[in-house]
Design a protein around this nucleic acid. Structure first.
Lengths: 150, 150
DNA sequence: CACCGTTATTTGCATTTACAAATAACTCCA
DNA sequence: TGGAGTTATTTGTAAATGCAAATAACGGTG
C-alpha cells in the first residue's frame, strides 16, 4: 500500500470508476448507458426539470447533456418542452418508454448499492454517505474560486 | 433531499467529479491534465511500471492510456522502454521534466485533499478512506462476473 | 523447432466529451 | 420602446474515450 492509497481523490475515483464501468457493462444489453441512467434517475426524482438543473444534479456538462438528450429523445425516452413563461428554458419529461426503461434499471441500481455496501452495517453505510455529502459540500463551497478571483 | 441523495453511486460520482473538474481547471495553466497527474502520481509511487499495471492503478482504460502516454512522451514527461525479459511489456519511466512537473502538482493535490476534508477530524478522515477501500474491494470482488458467466 | 492458445500493447473507428462561440430570450432601465 | 447586459441552451470543433480487432511476443507441447 503506497501513498496513493491514502490519497482521497484517488480512492474516490477508483471506487467510482469501478462501479461505473461495472454498471455500464451490465445495462448495455438493455440499450442503456450510465449517463442515460443518470438522466432518468434525476427525472425520476423530479420530472420536467430544465437542462441546467439536470446538468447540476447529474454532474454532466450542459453541452454534453444537450447531445445526450438528443439521443434519448431520438430513442423516445424523453421529450423536450420549451418553457412558456421563459422561452429560453427547456423542460425535460420522461415518456412512457422512458419510464419502462427506468423500471428495468432501478433494480439493477439497487443491487449495485447493495453490493457496494456489502459488509457495511446500517450505521457505517449512513456514515459513509454523510461523509460524501460533507465532502461534496466542501468542494461545492469553493466552486469557481479559481476563475473568479483572476 | 430526494432519494438520489441516499444513493451511494450518485454521491460518489458527484463528489468525485466535483473534485475532478476543479483540479483539472487548476492544473491546466501548468500544461497538465487530471489524467496526466494520475499517471505521474502512479509513477511517483512506482516508476517503471508497465502499461497494464498503470491502467489498473489509474483506472484508465489501456487503449486510452496508450494514447495518453503518447502525448506525455511527446511532451517529454515520460519515456517508454521495451522489456528485455518480456518484449511484449512496456515499462514507463518518468523523465526529469516529468519529475519537475510532478513536484509542481503535488502541492496542488495536497491542497485538494485538505480542502475536500475540511471539517473532518483525523479519525473521520481515516474512516472515510477505509470505507472507500472496502467499497472498492467489494466491487473488485465481482469484477468480470457479468461477462465470464456467459 | 513449429504450432496453438494466451498475454501485452497498440491501432481503427465511431462515439462521447468539453471548451468556446453562437443563438435566443429574458430583465432592467433610460 | 429600445438597447445593454445577463441567462439558458445549442452548435462548432478538436480532443478524449472505449470497444473490438490487429499486432507482437510469450509459454508450453507435439
Amino acid at each position: 500500500m503506497g501513498p496513493l492509497d491514502g490519497y482521497l481523490p484517488y480512492l474516490l475515483n477508483r471506487a467510482g470508476s469501478r462501479i461505473a464501468t461495472a454498471f455500464s457493462e451490465e445495462v448495455r444489453p438493455l440499450g442503456a448507458t450510465l449517463q442515460i441512467w443518470r438522466v432518468l434517475a434525476a427525472l425520476r426524482e423530479r420530472d420536467g426539470c430544465r437542462m441546467g438543473d439536470l446538468s447540476k444534479t447529474t454532474s454532466i456538462e450542459v453541452s454534453t447533456l444537450t447531445r445526450l438528450v438528443d439521443g434519448m429523445e431520438r430513442k423516445g425516452l424523453v421529450a423536450r418542452r420549451r418553457g412558456d413563461a421563459d422561452a429560453r428554458a427547456v423542460f425535460l419529461h420522461v415518456t412512457l418508454a422512458g419510464r419502462r426503461l427506468t423500471h428495468r434499471l432501478v433494480p439493477i441500481a439497487e443491487r449495485y448499492e447493495t453490493v457496494a455496501l456489502q459488509g457495511f452495517d446500517a450505521r457505517e453505510a449512513e456514515m459513509l454517505k454523510a461523509y460524501l455529502q460533507r465532502l461534496f459540500a466542501n468542494m461545492d463551497g469553493l466552486k469557481n474560486t479559481h476563475r473568479r478571483r483572476g
